Computed example of a mutant assay.
Amino acid sequence: MDEYFLEPTQQAGAQLFSRGLTGEVVMLNLLRFKDIADYAAHPEIAPEAAISGKAAFQKYIDHAQPFLKSSGGELMFMGTGGPFFIGPDHEQWDLVMLVKQRSLADFMAFASNPEYLAGLGHRTAALQDSRLLPIVQSKDGNIE
């Protein structure tokens, strides 16, 4: 049975904060879209006609960008994915993004902003599966 990941768990949140991250945090996003977006959980923001998961995710990006920028964040990279060169054959990602935030606290402020959350349903409608890996830059090029 396939297992899909769309939202963080309480355990994942606790682990993230226990890392004691300081300074900038970059979020590595791996995203797989549904063929047709499913707005069943968010009919209040559903478009009049059916759209693709990719189109729904673009609606999410358009909605989220102003809140990301105002919180000090930046969409550093967005690119088309595909099958792994090294990795499992069964995993394929449609989109890869790197999102930088000044700090974990700034990321959490962004992610909990009620105005931002009002458009989060576009993301939920769009995605079949996702991964989100918070990363911090190594100091002086050394493995820590």
Rank of each mutant, 00 (worst) to 15 (best):
Q128W: 05
T80H: 10
S112A: 07
Q11T: 13
Q15T: 07
K139P: 01
Y4F: 14
I143L: 14
L117E: 11
G79K: 01
L95T: 14
R123S: 10
E24T: 12
G82Q: 08
S70Y: 00
L6R: 14
E91R: 13
G119K: 10
K139T: 13
D89M: 07
Y4R: 15
K100G: 01
A55Y: 04
R102H: 04
Q11P: 01
K59F: 11
V136Y: 00
F110Q: 02
G79Y: 02
Y116N: 11
F85Y: 09
E74M: 10
A118F: 04
L98F: 12
I51N: 05
K54D: 04
D140N: 13
D106P: 02
Q11V: 10
L31Q: 03
K54V: 01
K59W: 00
G81Q: 03
A105Q: 14
D38I: 03
G20S: 09
P43W: 10
N142I: 08
V99D: 01
A111E: 07
E3S: 11
Q92N: 12
Q65E: 06
N113V: 06
P8L: 07
K100E: 02
P134L: 06
M108K: 13
F85N: 06
E44R: 08
D2G: 06
G121K: 10
A49W: 00
L28A: 09
W93A: 02
E7S: 12
I36H: 08
S52C: 07
S130G: 06
A37K: 12
S130M: 08
R102I: 01
L31F: 03
V26M: 05
T80N: 08
W93P: 02
A125P: 06
S130F: 04
L132I: 14
